[in-house]
Simulated assay, not measured.
Amino acid sequence: MAQILRIALIQSHLHWENPEQNRKMFGEKIDTISEDVDLVVLPEMFTSGFTMEPGHIDPSEGKKTVEWMQRLAKQKNTAVIGSIVFQENGNQFNRLFFVEPSGKYSTYDKKHTFTLAGEDKVYEAGKQKLIVEYRGFKICPLICYDLRFPVWARNVEDYDVLIYVANWPKPRIEAWDTLLKARAIENMAYCIGVNRTGLDDLQHEYPGHSAVYDELGKQIAYSDQEEILYVTLDKNQIESTRKKLRFLEDRDNFSWKE
């Protein structure tokens, strides 16, 4: 029996610190999706761009965006995933939401805040990994800078899909390309990276390079244009490869410690 997951990756520019305009834009893009998909992936901080001024975003916008994601997920019968600026108990988070068609959602707070931009000074770092079981697949969603740290992504849960949502700038895009492929190979899982495009208000340029790699590191989707990419993942392929090549069984045993 085939076990497939159909995914739409939305690679787009972002409106700076304007959640309402970004929701409108992404809603219009999602409305153009004519194919049946199980999951729509949006970039990191998709309602604001990579801002280090979370105070510029009204605290009510987080809840509005989650409710917007819930409406879309129900209407389209697809899960929607992306990260946003989110305030809770007076603290700011770069928080990812995985919203299912039922309205149920799971969250992940970015573990590795980007010190080069001072993200560690304004956003609280997460401490828990998230594994979502959805339509027969185990999915591990992470955020941007997390990509540089293989221990955090280590596949000790036997997940099938690793997803990175990002605002990854042009000067270091070769690292993005290389590390996405490496994460797929070392974890024997599909690895998906969804980046943004365009210039932000700080004049940082983002070149896209959203891509999907299979469990052996073969690139099966890629774009450097503003567009929607479609890909179908096959769980039977992963299981067959892991049965033949038992590399994960030889992994070192150790526990994560803060």
Score class of each variant (00 low, 15 high):
residue 219 Q to I: 15
residue 209 H to K: 07
residue 125 A to I: 00
residue 213 Y to F: 15
residue 125 A to C: 01
residue 196 R to T: 07
residue 203 Q to E: 09
residue 220 I to A: 05
residue 174 E to H: 14
residue 128 Q to M: 03
residue 157 E to S: 09
residue 204 H to Y: 05
residue 150 P to S: 14
residue 208 G to W: 01
residue 245 L to F: 13
residue 226 E to M: 08
residue 209 H to T: 03
residue 150 P to A: 12
residue 218 K to Q: 10
residue 229 L to S: 08
residue 169 P to E: 08
residue 136 G to Q: 10
residue 146 D to P: 04
residue 206 Y to E: 00
residue 214 D to G: 03
residue 218 K to Y: 04
residue 214 D to E: 07
residue 225 Q to L: 07
residue 217 G to T: 06
residue 148 R to F: 07
residue 207 P to H: 08
residue 142 L to F: 11
residue 187 N to R: 12
residue 165 V to C: 13
residue 171 P to K: 11
residue 217 G to F: 08
residue 205 E to F: 11
residue 207 P to A: 12
residue 147 L to T: 04
residue 205 E to G: 06
residue 183 R to K: 14
residue 161 V to E: 01
residue 192 I to E: 06
residue 161 V to F: 07
residue 216 L to H: 05
residue 199 L to T: 05
residue 125 A to F: 02
residue 224 D to G: 04
residue 175 A to E: 15
residue 202 L to C: 01
residue 231 V to E: 06
residue 190 Y to R: 07
residue 199 L to Y: 11
residue 239 E to H: 10
residue 242 R to K: 11
residue 146 D to Q: 11
residue 197 T to P: 00
residue 196 R to A: 07
residue 186 E to H: 13
residue 155 N to W: 02
residue 179 L to T: 11
residue 147 L to R: 01
residue 239 E to F: 01
residue 130 L to S: 09
residue 214 D to Q: 09
residue 189 A to S: 14
residue 163 I to F: 02
residue 242 R to G: 00
residue 191 C to F: 02
residue 213 Y to V: 09
residue 203 Q to N: 11
residue 235 K to R: 15
residue 174 E to G: 10
residue 199 L to P: 02
residue 133 E to L: 05
residue 133 E to M: 07
residue 131 I to S: 02
residue 202 L to E: 02
residue 231 V to P: 05
residue 139 I to T: 06
residue 179 L to A: 02
residue 124 E to M: 08
residue 242 R to Y: 01
residue 162 L to H: 04
residue 165 V to S: 14
residue 129 K to P: 01
residue 175 A to M: 15
residue 186 E to N: 14
residue 131 I to H: 11
residue 223 S to T: 15
residue 162 L to S: 05
residue 165 V to H: 13
residue 131 I to P: 07
residue 174 E to D: 14
residue 185 I to L: 13
residue 183 R to V: 05
residue 241 T to L: 13
residue 231 V to T: 12
residue 244 K to Y: 10
residue 208 G to S: 05
residue 157 E to T: 12
residue 241 T to S: 13
residue 157 E to G: 05
residue 134 Y to S: 09
residue 189 A to W: 03
residue 139 I to Q: 01
residue 241 T to D: 08
residue 169 P to R: 02
residue 205 E to L: 14
residue 170 K to C: 01
residue 242 R to F: 04
residue 166 A to M: 15
residue 151 V to S: 14
residue 207 P to L: 10
residue 178 T to W: 10
residue 212 V to N: 04
residue 159 Y to P: 06
residue 184 A to D: 05
residue 189 A to P: 01
residue 201 D to R: 12
residue 158 D to I: 00
residue 170 K to L: 10
residue 240 S to M: 12
residue 186 E to I: 15
residue 224 D to W: 06
residue 233 L to A: 07
residue 152 W to S: 11
residue 127 K to P: 00
residue 150 P to E: 14
residue 176 W to T: 00
residue 192 I to R: 04
residue 237 Q to P: 00
residue 225 Q to N: 08
residue 139 I to Y: 02
residue 197 T to I: 09
residue 195 N to A: 09
residue 145 Y to L: 02
residue 142 L to I: 06
residue 245 L to P: 00
residue 172 R to T: 15
residue 209 H to P: 00
residue 232 T to H: 03
residue 141 P to K: 07
residue 158 D to C: 03
residue 190 Y to D: 04
